[in-house]
Every structure is written in structure tokens, then in C-alpha cells.
């Protein structure tokens, strides 16, 4: 465990907590894409099936359980508990355009042709694009609340920090996972436009609002 990975994980954890707090305190899921959150629930479920087959550490296991658990709570909040506040009219990204190609790719390009490994690969590929419905929603409504921006920033930073972690692990541990690295780069690139807006607007006290 190096500092980049630890801070990356903490950033991921923080993103999830920010999102849950935003929903709980405001009693609203306005501005949040339910589709992205469903994709994240699928990502965690398919990736962490190894909870049943291998043990890495108590840290690793508890984080996995937390990520899976909170992803379902989030989906429950959006589609049940705070459903009247869910803005489905603006959450219109067609997720099948992500799931089908990503599923096909995981089947074709993986480390090992086994069920668990294909599902792990699927989750890595899917995670890299899972934020697209959310980014699409922000661009469609042309705005994002500050709290939603903080959530997106923390969530995007996590994979960017993992890129540094992989550089570190390559040099100091000889560890290299091409699938994770390529997907991590794609994931981070997707956030670049948002990172720019976040730094130039949100950090200066303005909320993100895009020209119509």
C-alpha cells in the first residue's frame, strides 16, 4: 500500500460519503444520475465477487463490503426513498450503449478466460465509463450543485491517484496490469473537462453552469 493508493481509496470513500450526505441532508437526489449509480452498483458487485474466493486484508475486505453496500443504498435512495425528487427526464443516457460493448470487450480482452476474471474485467471497463450518464445529465441541465461537483471531483481524483499508484508499483514492485491501467487512463480522461470547470469555477465559489 503506497500513499497514492491510500489517498485514492480515501478520495473514493469521501466521494461516496459526500453523495450519501447530500441526499440524506437535502432529502433529495436532484441532479444525480440514477443510471450512473446503477452502473456503479453493477461495477462493485461484479468486481468484488472475489470476496468469496480470496482474502487480501481486513482493509481490503471492509472497503469492498462498504462500496457494495453503499452503492445499493444509493440506488435505493434514488429509485425508492427520494424517488419524487429524482430528475428522470434529464437522466436519459442509453446505458445499453455502454454495457453491451463493454461486456463484449471483457469477453475478448481479459487476463484469463474464466467467469470471475471476465466479470472482474467487465467491472474495470464498465467503471471507466460509468460516470458518463452523470456527466451527460450535467451537460443536459447545464448546471451542477456545488455539492455534486465536490462528489464528482473526489470520484474523479480517485482513479487519477490510482494512475500514480500504478506508476509507483511498476517501478518499485514490478507490478503492471495493462487492463486496469488503460481503463484507468480512459476513466481519468473523461473527467478532464469537469476537472477544468471545477478548478476554474467551483473553487472560486461559483457553481458550474454551462452556456445553453
Amino acid at each position: 500500500m503506497n500513499i497514492f493508493r491510500l489517498v485514492g481509496d480515501m478520495s473514493h470513500l469521501l466521494a461516496i460519503i459526500i453523495l450519501l450526505m447530500k441526499m440524506w441532508k437535502s432529502r433529495s437526489v436532484a441532479g444525480i444520475s440514477g443510471k450512473s449509480q446503477i452502473l456503479f452498483a453493477i461495477v462493485f458487485t461484479t468486481r468484488y465477487l472475489d470476496l468469496f474466493t480470496s482474502f487480501v486484508s481486513i482493509y481490503n475486505t471492509s472497503m469492498k463490503v462498504f462500496f457494495i453496500g453503499t452503492s445499493y443504498v444509493t440506488v435505493y435512495f434514488i429509485y425508492q426513498h427520494f424517488k419524487p425528487t429524482y430528475d428522470s427526464n434529464h437522466d436519459t443516457f442509453r446505458v445499453e450503449f455502454l454495457i453491451v460493448p463493454v461486456g463484449g470487450l471483457a469477453f475478448l480482452v481479459n487476463h484469463e478466460f474464466s467467469l470471475l476474471e471476465i466479470l472482474w474485467t467487465f467491472s474495470i471497463y464498465l467503471e471507466s465509463v460509468a460516470i458518463l450518464p452523470q456527466l451527460f445529465m450535467v451537460s443536459k441541465t447545464g448546471e451542477a450543485e456545488s455539492i455534486t461537483s465536490h462528489y464528482l471531483f473526489a470520484l474523479g481524483s480517485y482513479r487519477a491517484l490510482y494512475l500514480l499508484n500504478w506508476i509507483y508499483r511498476y517501478y518499485f514492485e514490478g507490478f503492471f496490469d495493462l487492463i486496469a491501467v488503460v481503463a484507468g487512463c480512459v476513466q481519468t480522461i473523461l473527467y478532464c473537462d469537469f476537472f477544468y470547470l471545477y478548478i476554474t469555477k467551483v473553487l472560486k465559489g461559483k457553481k458550474i453552469s454551462l452556456p445553453a
Binding site: D50, S54, N60, S114, Y162, N165
Partner: peptide, 10 residues
């Protein structure tokens, strides 16, 4: 090789 890949990251 046991054919099992261990993923130690989250």
C-alpha cells in the same frame, strides 16, 4: 500457475 489472478486493489 494456478490460473487464478489475485487482484489486490479496489
Amino acid at each position: 500457475d494456478t490460473g487464478k489472478t489475485l487482484h489486490d486493489e479496489l
